[in-house]
């Protein structure tokens, strides 16, 4: 760490420190621990990819960083400290509101419906500006146009349009524009490309990358797609059942996955593992309420490498080499 610092000393990149974060949803069936005791450092100025199956808690984690977990979810404990802002979970309401949008840009998983259907897009950009006391509203509109243009859209048309006049993919890009237009130092993108075809997907990701580099911001990219992570992310965090399974530098993790779940994820993708015939789908199903009650490893039922110990104890999330953490009893710290 200390050896690297002088190189990054001139950056204003903002890091995020998450400690012991726990979020539960109260449902008819019981309390779903969607995020369970997560400790995570998001490095400033990097692109961190968060990956995991559907339901593993990625969106919930992202919403918890904004302290905006929707009902019936509830942040039970923990802290989320954003450099230069403070602990999002204990900050007063008004400072929280100002941090959202201004310091932390967020692109919704449901970005297709992230606009007020009754007012024009341009008007909503102005609402955003006024909410954050932007003096130069014309300048803000100019920034918005520029971003839309870069994402391959007819900016003037989009700004005068209502949400229902835009296609799903256009809406998603408009959502990205909203997250970037105030120059937030942290941008969280929750599956920003789900509604896009392969070409638009590539171009949007390219824009995310170039804006990230230009502005030296901190980017969190949530996705199902290991390929996207491989292309874009500096670091990758693997989530499973509301807990972290593994994290490390992307190249390292892809080349030497340590957690059996990560291995499974990588093997399931032919683009990375080699040819299609070698792709192996992950068997079994994601953890349910019953699994959460068990004392052992959440992945136990599906794990090809399990041993007796795994059934009785949850493996701790521990350092396994430089910049690397894994929650698995079978991993011997290498190097």
């Amino acid at each position: 760490m200390s050896a690297e610092w002088p190189l990054k000393a001139n950056t204003k990149a903002v890091g995020i420190t998450i400690r012991d974060l726990e979020v539960v949803y109260s449902t008819g069936q019981g309390q779903v621990p969607a995020v369970n005791g997560v400790d995570l450092d998001i490095a400033g100025g990097q692109i961190t990819g968060i990956i995991g199956e559907s339901g593993s808690g990625k969106s919930t984690l992202a919403m918890a960083i904004m302290n905006a977990v929707p009902h019936p979810g509830r942040i039970v404990k923990g802290s989320v400290v954003v450099d230069g802002v403070g602990n999002m979970l204990t900050l007063d309401k008004e400072s929280q509101r100002r941090a959202r949008g201004r310091n932390l840009g967020f692109v919704f998983q449901a970005a297709q419906n992230s606009l007020n259907p009754l007012t024009r897009v341009g008007h909503q950009v102005l609402d955003l500006g006024r909410s954050h006391n932007v003096k130069d509203l014309r300048g803000l509109l100019r920034r918005a146009k520029e971003l839309l243009h870069r994402m391959g859209m007819d900016a003037d048309r989009v700004l005068t349009a209502y949400q229902h006049e835009l296609s799903g993919g256009m809406r998603q890009r408009v959502g990205i524009m909203f997250a970037l237009v105030l120059d937030a130092q942290v941008v969280i993108l929750d599956e920003p490309t789900t509604a896009l075809d392969m070409l638009s997907q590539a171009s949007v990701l390219e824009i995310v990358r170039s804006i990230h580099e230009e502005r030296d911001i901190t980017t969190i990219l949530i996705t199902h797609d290991m390929g996207v992570v491989a292309d874009l992310a500096d670091r990758v965090v693997v989530m499973y059942g509301g807990e972290l399974a593994e994290e490390g530098e992307t190249a390292e993790v892809l080349a030497h996955p340590a957690h059996p779940y990560t291995k499974g994820l990588i093997q399931a993708i032919p683009r990375i593992s080699g040819d299609l015939s070698q792709a192996v789908a992950l068997s079994g199903s994601p953890p349910d309420l019953k699994t959460f009650m068990q004392s052992g490893c959440l992945f136990y039922d599906r794990c090809p490498e399990r041993v007796a110990e795994c059934q009785v104890k949850r493996p701790p999330y521990e350092s396994a080499g430089p910049e690397r953490k894994v929650a698995c009893f079978r991993v011997m710290p290498h190097d």
Binding site: M63, M66, A68, P70, R97, R98, A99, R100, G101, R102, F106, F108, A110, A111, N113, S114, L115, N116, P117, D127, L128, R130, S131, H132, Q163, G175, F178, A179
Partner: peptide, 12 residues
Amino acid sequence: DFILASEVRGIK
């Protein structure tokens, strides 16, 4: 969704 989105964008 758009109400949650406006909250996350820090709209007044």
